[in-house]
Write a protein that binds this DNA or RNA. Structure first.
Lengths: 228, 228
DNA sequence: CTGTTTTTGTATCGATCGACACAGAAAGGC
DNA sequence: GCCTTTCTGTGTCGATCGATACAAAAACAG
């Protein structure tokens, strides 16, 4: 029933999902920078959310016509998924960078919360306030599939935290008696709350002070500061 | 220029803003329960947010026609404001109840976080998960006026927390050296984060464990548990 | 009863929503 | 050169958005 043509509906040649190299096609070349357009779309979804961002908003910000948008990204939902992935690749490092290079779990969590305080308040370049993943309510807006995407993205945070703490237990930094899941949930809660305060205009110093109090809770739970 | 008639556009007779008693009017009586309809509208805005909730959704849930909605509430924005006030009056007590009756600031904050863990996960009757005020992103959706309403509602939390802690300082429960604003921001952050975790399906026990760790941070900052 | 006032249901308004048809334009393949 | 392929700009599709016009219906005032 399907046409003989392989129906290359949306263009993923430059998308990160394509395994093939740039592969300059045969037809008329694209007149806009796909990456730059995706960056603009990401910023728009980030600040306004999925429902409140219209195709007209997107085409204006991206500087292209709607047919170009649909040819390059497929649909509004597909564009949102790509924008979300683009966000994670280009901005999550600002928050999780020190986490993965720290020598101890305490330094990792401390770095995560401190970098969150800076990045979420827009102190790491000209970026919107708050985390796009944390603040996305697309799941409650009637888009179940998109909601599951962002929900799983949020869930990955607690997994990463738990894994790092489990390693800390194996290395003797954290006693085996500590409830790692509760501790990970605590850190996740503080970081999520930071996004809401940041969007309401909280200062970086305020969130850093919050992070310090949170680390006092960490120390009390883990059982005293690690050896200096 | 305005008509001689006082133009009683929207009907606030039964609204909480009216100072006059029920005042059964002269014309055809309203066929629906304004309070019940407002409750349904509140639930819808609560779960789906402002943008994603359409007039058609509202009229269906409220069981009325759109002219009745506009005659009784004025507009979608006005209805949202009323729904927000209705929410605060009917649901915020679930979270702030023990806070105002506690003898110490520590018990107040502990009660706030513990009751939040229960209420935000829907364990206080059949209510949506998460806080309507905390999770509202209407300000980022392009509605500046509504955004300011919810933003100020969120800001009131930190004010209440700070006031209570100042009282605790005056009563000797908290040393004067403690940064009350930072402590209030910390509690606000944890409570805000709880709403996000709750909407993603976190269990009540998980959030209670988070609250316990948060209280460890409180104790470390305030300087040891109060005398038993 | 008649007149006034207010609500109700139906039907609809212009604007905007996401998405696409179509033809012209710009490239490579031959 | 011509053919195929792909992208771009204009225009527009049906659906839905928030918000009303209108007249019938239901109450009170006299």
């Amino acid at each position: 029933m399907q046409k003989s043509r392989p129906t290359p509906r949306t263009d993923d040649r430059t998308a990160q999902t394509a395994g093939t190299p740039p592969a300059r096609g045969r037809g008329r070349p694209r007149a806009f920078d796909r990456e730059a357009a995706l960056t603009q779309a990401t910023r728009l979804f980030w600040t306004k959310g999925y429902e409140a961002t219209s195709i007209a908003d997107l085409t204006e910000a991206m500087g292209i016509g709607s047919p170009s948008l649909y040819a390059a990204f497929g649909s509004k939902e597909a564009l949102y998924v790509e924008a979300l992935n683009h966000y994670r690749k280009s901005h999550e490092g600002l928050v999780w960078g020190r986490f993965f290079t720290a020598d101890t779990a305490r330094e990792a969590v401390m770095g995560l919360l401190m970098d969150s305080a800076a990045a979420l308040t827009g102190c790491r370049g000209d970026i919107p306030r708050g985390c796009m993943v944390t603040l996305s309510a697309v799941g409650s807006e009637g888009h179940a599939e998109l909601g599951e995407v962002v929900r799983s993205a949020r869930a990955s945070a607690v997994d990463i935290l738990t894994e790092r703490m489990a390693r800390a237990v194996a290395e003797g930094e954290i006693p085996a008696s500590v409830d790692l899941h509760a501790l990970a949930r605590f850190v996740q809660t503080v970081q999520a709350g930071m996004s809401i305060l940041a969007r309401d205009g909280a200062e970086r110093a305020e969130l850093e002070a919050v992070a310090e109090v949170a680390m006092l809770g960490w120390d009390a739970r883990v059982g005293g500061r690690p050896a200096p």
